[in-house]
Design a protein around this nucleic acid. Structure first.
Lengths: 210, 210
DNA sequence: TGAAATTAAACAAACGTTTAATTAATTTTT
DNA sequence: AAAAATTAATTAAACGTTTGTTTAATTTCA
């Protein structure tokens, strides 16, 4: 890995753990094993480094929902299942980075970064929303509030993963339970959301695994 | 309002807007109209001030869910409705403070504060969870994942309110729409969650306002 | 008179950033 | 292909600010 990339991944980890203001440039440089001046040399400023981190991390997963949307082999409710699975997968793969985005989103004193994150997240939201709307028009799904339904899916997942300690205590697990590594929890969340969405979206009284 | 309280409310607003590290003690002192030394005189340190802010804000609403729980005049699903109404109300009353809590919760480098917030939020979660469990045992509600159901309610609301700009764009509103002041949005979220919870929890096929 | 409240000033430490000098790598010229 | 010239990468040190906190003197109030 070249130094530029090493700085980005190190910064991502530190920003995720301690926030933007809570992480110093010296800390990043030291953890990445580079001279402190290299950071300004490559990224101009700390804020620009942050933007690079966001861009680096989200570019890979940007097309995920769009690809899923164009897959026509699945039934509407099966697609909902897939959307849930993929989103849960994505959040579990990098929970701390998701927190970083949400944290920055809830702050208002760095407008540029705020705007950039908003645009990134909106893409995913609109893809799902449009999918739901189409199937409501077709008469396949109930006439639900599509925008808030997307919020429910995303909000549920990010809420559970907001803190390891919180998650453990809420689920009454002991100290050696690691939420972010638990395959069981991942499946449990998927199951819950699928069941929730089936009763929410489907007109007929099909109950799911219950 | 005495100076101590003035410092707390000013700090709350600034911490909410700019985060803990993003707010300086000088800034708080200046905005509160007090000498900078007064903050350490009253609160010993910046971190202790933060803890005082959290304590001050949450003490008032701490008993809310417990009181609601002991109200026996309502049917189970009506109580769910009330829980949703109250929670939405609470979040809309101080959205930025909610973000402050969630932001701090997603960081791991101030363990003391992290722990304090966890305990505060857990009280509400367990009250709702226990209520759901009781009604599942009685056979009134379906056998759902109670813990994740609570996450869904809380997560949906906090996800929508995470950012004003995000909310506006997601709901396709124009610039002069103020999400945090919108009574309509508040009702819309309540409606969505009530409908969601009825299809999720109720065994019979009662659909709600649809 | 004595305790509490308030102040301006200073504290050391940490912050993000820049400088200027040096080494490494690449390109151009012979 | 070797030498020279040019660009890029890297470094230690210092830059001026800002940070949270403390001091010691003064004012306020009981």
């Amino acid at each position: 890995m070249d130094k530029r990339e090493k700085i980005i991944t190190t910064a991502m980890n530190l920003f995720s753990q301690k926030g933007f203001e809570g992480t110093s440039v010296r800390e990043i440089a030291s953890a990445a094993g580079v001279n402190i001046a290299m950071i300004n040399y490559y990224f101009v400023s700390k804020e620009k480094l942050f933007e690079s981190v966001v861009e680096y991390k989200t570019s890979a997963t940007r097309t995920m929902f769009a690809e899923l949307d164009s897959n026509t082999a699945l039934s509407p409710i099966e697609k909902v299942d897939k959307i849930i699975d993929r989103y849960v997968e994505r959040m579990f793969a990098a929970p701390k980075f998701s927190h970083l985005l949400h944290r920055e989103l809830s702050l208002s004193h760095r407008p540029k970064l705020h705007h950039a994150i908003t645009e990134i997240l909106l893409q995913n939201i609109f893809t799902i929303k449009t999918f739901l709307q189409k199937n409501i028009e077709k008469g396949v799904f109930k006439k639900v509030d599509t925008e808030l339904t997307v919020c429910t899916i995303i909000g549920t997942i990010s809420n559970i993963l907001v803190s390891e300690e919180m998650c453990r205590k809420m689920l009454r697990k002991n100290k050696d339970f690691n939420p972010y590594q638990s395959k069981k929890l991942k499946e449990r969340i998927s199951e819950h959301l699928k069941q929730l969405m089936r009763s929410h979206l489907l007109k007929t009284n099909k109950t799911f695994k219950q």
